[in-house]
Design a protein around this nucleic acid. Structure first.
Lengths: 178, 178
DNA sequence: TATTATTTTAACCATTTGGTTAATGATGCA
DNA sequence: TGCATCATTAACCAAATGGTTAAAATAATA
């Protein structure tokens, strides 16, 4: 991220746009070049291969998706505040970039190994385990009802993210039923 | 679906396997032919083009995803039973074929028009509108708390489907945090 | 069995696509 | 101003890929 040339930024922006929409296998280097308004060879000049370029974009996407979440894991925040932060964060981030979640989910499914790397390497990634512990102590204190902590986490994440992912289908459906 | 030859079935099965895993743009006709144990030209003999073949698979997928759901829309079932049927149906169907939801979501995002067709044409497709009405009358009768019906539907669907979609990420995450 | 229709294949073909190369433009610097 | 480095491009290449064709194998039919 340190001092990218103007062209480099254009390329990354273009690559994000195309990769987010079409995925790795659906994206064409020519499309990215066109979107960036440059020659295709220049893509390879800066980022050697399609895969390398995709890696950058993917790492960017992961960061974008989870930056704010990290904030919820500060120790000095109450459980309910943490939950609020998580939900708000997802809604804000995805609202800003609707392609993000489905892009990540699809690509993780295509190459699970690629994500495990980013997860161990990448700085900001939400730690579910710590969230679970918070819920457990919260339940003991009586702040929330006693539930399976993992299930609660999954439910919160599901309800925060899935509506965006399924939006085209739901909207389509409602429209079809008049 | 009426009396397909053995080869045709093999092709459909192979095509489903490959398309489900890799999506339209990621799938190779050669892969499908190999998976079916036949020559690539035979694919085109039965299903003219990759797109035509994909259309079959996609329609199949949509049906598979929503067959059972239709059952929940019978009039003589209570609201809570309906909800149970919906949740169980999704869990069963996706448990049987984990690739299904992400495949559909991804492809619908790639070509929204394709889905709208399937939705208007396809027989079994869950009608959210009718579900919403059930919830509204249920709320009036006091069977459930008064909530935004659409939000409830979306939450139910989210919690039923998303855990499967995000499974690799959640499992990966938990493993990484030891 | 002879012939016709159907199924299957090997060999091709045209296009697309990721990637390379060599030349041209620009930019800084001595 | 001349030279060297960096940025950019047009033209090209090889491999991959969807699709075709003509021939071979198989099944149906008379």
């Amino acid at each position: 991220m340190e001092s990218l040339s103007n062209t480099e930024k254009q390329i990354i922006e273009a690559a994000k746009k195309i990769f987010f929409q079409k995925g790795l296998s659906g994206a064409r280097m020519q499309d990215i070049a066109d979107e960036a308004g440059i020659n295709k060879a220049l893509l390879h000049y800066y980022y050697r291969s399609k895969d390398k370029l995709f890696d950058m974009v993917f790492e960017d996407a992961m960061n974008e998706m989870f930056v704010d979440i990290k904030a919820s894991q500060r120790k000095d925040v109450t459980l309910k505040e943490k939950i609020t932060v998580v939900v708000n964060s997802y809604i804000t981030v995805i609202g800003r970039n609707p392609y993000l979640p489905l892009f990540i989910l699809h690509e993780v499914n295509q190459h699970p190994e690629r994500m495990v790397q980013r997860m161990t390497g990448g700085a900001n990634f939400p730690e579910i385990k710590s969230f679970i512990k918070d819920i457990q102590t919260g339940a003991k204190k009586g702040v929330i009802r006693k539930v399976d902590p993992l299930q609660l986490v999954i439910s919160i994440i599901s309800m925060s993210i899935f509506p965006f992912v399924a939006r085209p289908m739901i909207q389509g459906n409602i429209r079809v039923g008049q």
